[in-house]
């Protein structure tokens, strides 16, 4: 039971992507110009992550070691195409906004990383839980980064206007440089907080 809890919770702080687990930076930078896009991207990744972990864990004794990476790639790519089609059918606006970053989930290191590090050596149930945990952690991070950038850069949150008319949004935040700097400062802040709590996890 304690194992289940630790797997369920590790994605939210201990292995929080993309901050603690420095993987999947591209989508974290690219689609976080608004909170809504960040949330949509996070949910798509979560979907792929849960099912890829589940399927790979189910097949872990069937897939020969030599072709395992190739098999993982096929499984992940299939799931990504399914997500692509679902988004086009039910969330067309979002799929237009996310553009090529949806097919690029295929090469998102988080998913292949979890398949290799967790799903290939754990039971299907635990693997799915791991996918859920890491995926929700990723969603949370992306939504937070997206919210910060959207609020500062456009004065809105999920499209709702927040600021008064005097507030001059600094468009810098929703452009590329703002993405890098915002993510870098957040990472520094998290490191400082960890340090204050006495954890020793600073990224080298």
């Amino acid at each position: 039971m304690s194992r289940f809890l630790s797997v369920l919770l590790h994605g939210f702080w201990k292995d929080l992507p993309p901050f603690r687990l420095v993987l999947g930076l591209c989508p974290a930078l690219a689609v976080t110009a608004s909170a809504n896009n960040g949330l949509g991207m996070g949910m798509s990744v979560t979907f792929v992550l849960i099912f890829s972990n589940l399927v790979i864990s189910l097949l872990r004794n069937v897939i020969p070691n030599k072709v395992r990476i190739a098999s993982y790639i096929v499984i992940i790519a299939t799931l990504v195409v399914i997500v692509e089609m679902i988004l086009q059918a039910y969330f067309f606006g979002l799929s237009q906004q996310l553009g090529i970053y949806i097919p690029l989930i295929v090469v998102n290191c988080i998913i292949l990383g979890r398949a290799e590090a967790f799903a290939s050596r754990n039971t299907p149930f635990l693997s799915a839980v791991d996918g859920l945990s890491i995926g929700l952690g990723f969603t949370m991070s992306l939504t937070v980064v997206g919210s910060i950038r959207e609020m500062l850069g456009a004065g809105t949150w999920f499209g709702m206007s927040l600021a008064s008319a005097e507030f001059e949004p600094f468009a810098f935040m929703i452009k590329a440089p703002g993405a890098f700097i915002c993510l870098g400062l957040l990472l520094g802040l998290m490191n400082a907080f960890s340090h204050w709590r006495g954890e020793n996890v600073i990224q080298k």
């Binding site: 890098f180 870098g184 490191n191 340090h195 990224q203």
Partner: peptide, 13 residues
């Protein structure tokens, strides 16, 4: 606390 990836990202920005 800014060492490593954090400062790298700010530099990239």
């Amino acid at each position: 606390f800014m060492k490593g990836t954090a400062i790298a990202l700010v530099t990239a920005g």
